[in-house]
């Protein structure tokens, strides 16, 4: 079995401890970039959420003057 694996990955089989260091280096770089992308995605979601609220407010304005003016009063008091 190990012989077979050796044939498949032949030119670049992890050799001893070197494999651990190489794996660590690649994983660290990948994790940092992934964390960055995750943070960016989170920010994007927050922006979309806030945009959605703005859009909802804009639409609500067309629905009825009463509830909206009451609403603005409430919001500005709070």
């Amino acid at each position: 079995m190990s012989h077979l694996l050796g044939l498949i990955g032949s030119p670049a089989l992890p050799l001893g401890t070197a494999g651990r260091y190489v794996a660590a280096a690649y994983i660290v770089a990948f994790v940092i970039v992934a964390a960055y992308v995750a943070i960016m995605a989170l920010r994007l979601r927050r922006i979309e959420h806030a945009l959605g609220e703005l859009a909802a407010d804009a639409h609500a304005r067309h629905d009825g003057e009463d509830s909206i003016s009451a609403l603005t009063g409430e919001r500005l008091e709070g």
């Binding site: 806030a50 609220e53 703005l54 407010d57 609500a60 003057e65 003016s69």
Partner: peptide
């Protein structure tokens, strides 16, 4: 004047929910 309601700062989530309920 358009009555866009702000969704800045702290008040957002709870009052946004209350607004939906109010509507």
């Amino acid at each position: 004047a358009p009555l866009l309601v702000p969704s800045t700062a702290s008040a957002d989530r709870s009052s946004g929910r209350r607004r939906q309920l109010a509507e």
